[in-house]
Design a protein around this nucleic acid. Structure first.
Lengths: 217, 217
DNA sequence: ACCTGAACACCGTTCAAGT
DNA sequence: ACCTGAACACCGTTCAAGT
């Protein structure tokens, strides 16, 4: 209806496409994202995008790599556990700010240099702290997958809370839980609802991992 | 081409639909799954499914709840850390056996009684071990999201390894990493590749969490 | 190289209709 | 209740063509 004006030639670029794609994914959810919608937003035909990206997955990779480039640097001059905390919190903050990143990371892993940034940061800190190669690698993967899982879940629950219909459905499910079959869940419902997000819950798990790391040996 | 024979009336059921859907998701990947493909496999028109499920998401929920019902019971007569390990390993094993479960859990959370099973098991064990309500709730969510993140990542990496084209792409990316920009990643490449899956890597993170839990107080 | 337009082989879902 | 068939409003992508 708004009759978008056609974009003149040679005004398109990979960067513009990635930025616009990111805007659309954040605006209306990354499930609703489509190449045709993106092309319409840019004022070009769907096929114009194929000059810059081989296919949809290729564009997804570019968006993900763009986002991973925004990871903040490791803080200097603090103890290594605080450096680990900073890297993990930085990744989580980025995922919360750009919820589509969770799906982009879960969907197409590790290819692309930008994903290596987090690995380098974590591994560097752990090696400097004196951990051997195998322990550093193991710990890195553990931390990374914890951040991924915890934050993805947090984003999912937040989305559920936004939709009033889903809110009712969740509430109905909880209330229908049999107290004999699920006694502890029913008893701990208020405590559980407080664990579905927030810095405290995230830091609790992170500190558990760090405590385990410092205790073990 | 195979000219599937039409299924006679009243032979359809929710259970049959769910089982067939699960077979298709495991056989050819849950991304390629479609209602139309499922209907064809069942020998009915696409709309026949709408008698049993309101829409595609509703079917996804049914498949997820079906799978979560297969969670093994908590073992009796062992120390609580081993009970926690058994629940977490049970969920992981189920996810590995049915890779689509990872996406089903990430996509539509907590609604449905079956998902409460894991929560009840973990919370029950933790409460019996003497942890207060808040610690039990926090620890449960930490453990659950760790299992989710670690296993989802593991599944993703395994899928990547299967596809020879993706294998080459990953190898090329790793080899192109600058040793000055990513010194630790380059140095620890062999150790890192050994952390992308397997029981040892999973148990390493799980034990880190348990050690942290027993150390803290 | 950069982009268009038509076409292909798909989707999920609505609607009216049949048994 | 159970299922069909046509139709709608979408997809990603190929192909041939234009500048």
């Amino acid at each position: 209806m708004p009759a978008k004006t056609r974009t003149p030639r040679n005004t398109l670029s990979s960067e513009l496409i990635v930025r616009t794609a990111l805007d659309l994914m954040e605006g209306q959810g990354s499930d609703a994202f489509s190449l045709r919608g993106l092309a319409a937003e840019l004022g070009v035909g769907p096929m114009a995008l194929y000059t810059y990206f081989r296919n949809k997955d290729d564009l997804y990779d570019a968006v993900r790599d763009h986002l991973m480039g925004l990871i903040p640097p490791v803080p200097e001059g603090v103890a290594w556990p605080d450096q680990v905390r900073a890297v993990c919190r930085g990744l989580r903050a980025l995922m919360l700010q750009h919820p589509c990143l969770a799906q982009l990371l879960a969907g197409r892993p590790l290819s692309g240099h930008e994903t290596a940034r987090v690995a380098e940061d974590l591994l560097g800190v752990l090696r400097s702290a004196g951990f051997d190669a195998q322990t550093a690698a193991r710990t890195h993967t553990t931390l990374f997958t914890y951040v991924l899982g915890a934050t993805s879940w947090e984003i999912q629950m937040a989305a559920e809370r936004q939709d009033p219909q889903e809110r009712r459905r969740l509430r109905a499910t909880i209330e229908s839980l049999s107290p004999t079959e699920f006694p502890t869940v029913v008893e701990l419902t208020p405590e559980l609802s407080r664990t579905t997000g927030g810095d405290e819950q995230f830091d609790y798990g992170l500190d558990l991992l760090l405590a385990g790391l410092q205790a073990g040996g």
